[in-house]
Nucleic acid binder design. Sequence first.
DNA 1: TATGAATGAGATTTCATTCAT
DNA 2: CATGAATGAAATCTCATTCAT
Lengths: 202, 202, 202, 202
Amino acid sequence: MEPIRRQQLIKATMAAIDEVGLAEATVMRIARHAGVSAGIISHYFGGKDGLLEATMRQILTDLSGAVSARRHALEDNSPRAHIGAIIEGNFDRTQVTGPAAKTWLAFWASSMHKPILQRLQYVNDRRLYTNLCHQFQRVMPRHDARNAARGLAAMIDGLWLRGALTPEGLDAAEARHLAHTYLNQLLTHHGCLEEASTTDIH
Amino acid sequence: MEPIRRQQLIKATMAAIDEVGLAEATVMRIARHAGVSAGIISHYFGGKDGLLEATMRQILTDLSGAVSARRHALEDNSPRAHIGAIIEGNFDRTQVTGPAAKTWLAFWASSMHKPILQRLQYVNDRRLYTNLCHQFQRVMPRHDARNAARGLAAMIDGLWLRGALTPEGLDAAEARHLAHTYLNQLLTHHGCLEEASTTDIH
Amino acid sequence: MEPIRRQQLIKATMAAIDEVGLAEATVMRIARHAGVSAGIISHYFGGKDGLLEATMRQILTDLSGAVSARRHALEDNSPRAHIGAIIEGNFDRTQVTGPAAKTWLAFWASSMHKPILQRLQYVNDRRLYTNLCHQFQRVMPRHDARNAARGLAAMIDGLWLRGALTPEGLDAAEARHLAHTYLNQLLTHHGCLEEASTTDIH
Amino acid sequence: MEPIRRQQLIKATMAAIDEVGLAEATVMRIARHAGVSAGIISHYFGGKDGLLEATMRQILTDLSGAVSARRHALEDNSPRAHIGAIIEGNFDRTQVTGPAAKTWLAFWASSMHKPILQRLQYVNDRRLYTNLCHQFQRVMPRHDARNAARGLAAMIDGLWLRGALTPEGLDAAEARHLAHTYLNQLLTHHGCLEEASTTDIH
DNA sequence: TATGAATGAGATTTCATTCAT
DNA sequence: CATGAATGAAATCTCATTCAT
């Protein structure tokens, strides 16, 4: 029963945050979304904080999984392919849905003052940066690679952020296009990709 | 007395949000920061919401002012100069201080579910986008200009976001450098700036 | 559980009003009277106003019930019998108890500025007037009947009011006697009851 | 200056109570009605309670004055004339105005739990009762006179109460008519006034 | 395992009063 | 004499959590 309930409640948490925001996402509202009583949350997660932490973990796991899946499915081992997969993973369907996006941003803000969330968020940030950096280093000097990684990471998060804030939600196709274009520019600048501007993503 | 108290309380609000986050920034804590009693907040702002709205307005005004000041001080009327000034203004000292940055992000998250904040945030977003778009259109076709504006706006916000989340705070110099580099790439790609990569900001 | 708690809290409300008056009847005091916590009031009644409205409704229902019961138990269908039953019902035990009487008067005053209470009070007033009028019309012309109804309604309310204000509380027996005497006078004046002054109420 | 301010504030108190009721008549609202600052109330009346007490005293004085004036102006020294004057005084213009009527009722309710107001109200009640009783005793036995006095007092208060509660306000003419009619009945029943039913008030 | 009744802490807001100017 | 800035107490309401069933 436990894993079912936990999953159910995590999903309900995202739905509640999507609906009214983190500040108004009371345990009762979350419980109602899940179709259970409020008391059960303390039973399975020790309390509201536990549920929020579990929810953030879930989101990070989903994101991580989306990226990993795409990278493992690559036939091309080039840096561009890997970085492209990272971009694609970050704008994966599960991530850009309303609930996930808003929950994501809510946790970002919240993480500034909650050590547990901060740690989770930090680990995730590092992973994105490290992965990007590693791939960029295969085609450019260390210093340039670090800047490229920082720039692309900022671009991804910025697109995400603006998408979450837009009432209509993130336009994933456009976001991916902009990110890939930027990637092309970064790689082009180091002469490793003459045909960059002609490459297109579906 | 009123303008003094209002300013004092707005500053205290940022300090409190910087210290413990928006969720824990109670009127009592804010009042303590300002060295006044809690009741005075309702007296001058009608309530907590009024104070929060006024605080967000203040931040937006500061940002707007920082950008405007730099653009009016330009001797060079080129698109690159204007866009550079917009970037600089966005990473202005008053904006990147801990309190302002965290308050900023807190409002971002909060604005998703509070119509008043949402409107303020939307207006600000549009202004950034419109200004960038206008300048880019002077040197590239409309469609490319729009993408460039979207990309640069995302980059600015992304750098901002990651800076706010980093425990040490935003490294303004690095952020500006990355933004300017990206700007160079955008302009270079349209052949209007051969020496782009050699231009540097102080 | 709900009906039990609601009843319990309504009774506690009357007790609190009896003790310290409506203005000082805080939710905490009411809750203490009921032996429960203050929060439960908002849970069951949505808030203090909901509780006050429910309490007034209860009082009106009790009054209405007291009158109806006596009228249905009548063997005599004469106007005098019906009107007598109305008088008796209005000075029924449940109505003249300290708590009910003071709550009653408190609501009267309060109803002048609270639309919900005003509506309840108005409906009740009309019912008393209409019932009296209808019965009086059976033995006197319409115009006289209306005046008789107005006079007797005023008399009933006046006795009630003065009873509530008297420190010792309403002397129900005396009040009933005065009301019945007045009724006799009203009927006598229309020659329908020669022995009016000799008829006595238990 | 003092008597002017006191009068001004007492009048403003009635206006505020008329407007929003005693519970919502804050010192600020009263002060605004008087066109002065809130602090002045404590200065002249020692506090809000002092102002309320002064206001109730004013109302009682007005009532008392209205009755006395009419009784002193009588040419006829008969009981009926005196009692008639008492009735007329009670439905005097200054008493039945919206502000006075609502303030009156508000104090009635309030007096049940505030000793100072209770005393004032008690003295006033006794005076009405004693005066009526005294006059009735001139034409009927003590016991009957007491009942007549009680009945008429209740009638007056009842008409007053119902008038105050009616949205359109008290219909003074009708109230006086009903009261006089009742008076006639009381006197007629003791054979002291054959032409009672034909006597009419203007 | 799950409910929902109940609590108590905490947050916002209102308001009478005080006091320096 | 009068103002209005400021306080602090009190009141209502919300909400996470607990616990008996």
